[in-house]
């Protein structure tokens, strides 16, 4: 199957207080139609900026897409003019965020916002759009849609707002949905509802999904493939199964060791990663994880490891393959 999205060498920097933040550095991945890619990493690792860059929404200044290409359904999004880009945004690629309020207009009814999307992008008349909007509201599980269409966003709970956002996002049957921490602000039973809606819609519409989250459980449940980001770079990539079952980058292994597990008997102690996440200021001259890595050597502190294949369809950015290292130490 051919890729619907191919990102290659994406690099985004911000000018901030006289310094350069290397927010996203040489990020590459691809995604097939109907597939889910999970992007996971701690705060500041570059997940949101990657997503914004795909849609060319990085605020500029202070941000700048320095290099790279984003091929979506055969076109390079980074080369399109603004008019061409507008046709793709919201119609072929849609995005949802952690805070639906930031993207909903508080002074327009939910129905008005939903129908507007369809009138603009699909050329529907007001009547058709309203009928469609009701269907969409049903699709995302909003009770009494006819009545709720005429209400304003503040009348909706957090979970209901996120449903509205999803309805707006899928109104034009996009080929790709980018979901940036869509359930982070929600309670766990509401999160389960929203994730189920996204899964079902994906199956129904055949859309590809990029699920961005810091929650390893959420990616495990949603993603076919995973990119782990750290300090602006992809440090491990592969199928969800491989990355969780046999992480090859020490950071990924460390993250998995840090989370208490519901599905296992309680360990007496967690094994945290020492130190704090990097701020991505300045160009990297070493592995960004080296200061926190128990396996780091002088090589790690003096050169940036490339993302390389360590097993079939499994990439890791580590100078040493920890599986091999611990194997030879034994």
């Amino acid at each position: 199957m051919s890729a619907i999205l191919e990102v290659s060498g994406l690099t985004v920097r911000f000018a901030s207080q006289g310094q350069t933040v290397h927010a996203v550095e040489d990020v590459s991945f691809s995604l097939e139609a109907g597939q889910t890619l999970g992007i996971v990493g701690e705060s500041g690792s570059g997940k949101s900026v990657t997503a914004l860059a795909l849609m060319r929404l990085v605020p500029s200044p202070p941000g700048r897409i320095v290099s790279g290409s984003v091929r979506f359904a055969g076109r390079d999004l980074l080369a399109l003019n603004p008019a061409q880009l507008r046709k793709i945004r919201g119609r072929e690629i849609a995005m949802i965020f952690q805070d639906p309020m930031s993207s909903l207009n508080p002074v327009l009814t939910v129905g008005r916002q939903l129908t507007e999307v369809m009138e603009t992008h699909l050329g529907l008349d007001a009547r058709q759009a309203r009928t469609q909007a009701i269907e969409l509201m049903k699709l995302v599980g909003i009770p009494s849609p006819e009545r709720r269409l005429d209400e304003y966003p503040h009348r909706f709970s957090g979970g209901m707002r996120q449903r509205v956002m999803i309805a707006m996002a899928v109104a034009c049957r996009p080929k790709l949905l980018i979901a940036d921490e869509p359930t982070t602000a929600l309670d766990v039973t509401i999160q389960a509802q929203i994730l189920e809606i996204i899964r079902n819609l994906q199956r129904e519409l055949g859309m590809a999904v990029i699920m961005i989250t810091h929650d390893l459980g959420v990616v495990a449940g949603m993603a076919d493939r995973i990119c782990v980001m750290y300090g602006g770079r992809v440090v491990e990539a592969g199928s969800a199964r491989d990355v969780f079952a046999a992480p090859r980058m020490p950071y990924t292994a460390g993250l998995l060791g840090s989370v208490p597990r519901l599905d296992r008997p309680s360990e007496r102690r967690l094994v945290p990663i020492t130190g704090t996440p990097p701020d991505s200021v300045g160009a990297a001259t070493s592995c960004r994880f080296a200061p926190r890595c128990g396996l780091a050597t002088d090589l790690c502190r003096s050169s940036v490891p490339a993302l390389r294949t360590v097993a079939p369809d499994h990439l890791s950015a580590c100078h040493f393959d920890p599986v091999l290292v611990s194997g030879s130490a034994r």
């Binding site: 766990v188 929650d215 959420v218 990616v219 969780f244 998995l256 519901l262």
Partner: peptide
């Protein structure tokens, strides 16, 4: 219900 809603970091179990 709460426990069943918490995603766990294991794709096999999640599926």
């Amino acid at each position: 219900a709460l426990l069943s809603a918490v995603p766990v970091p294991d794709p096999e179990i999640e599926r």
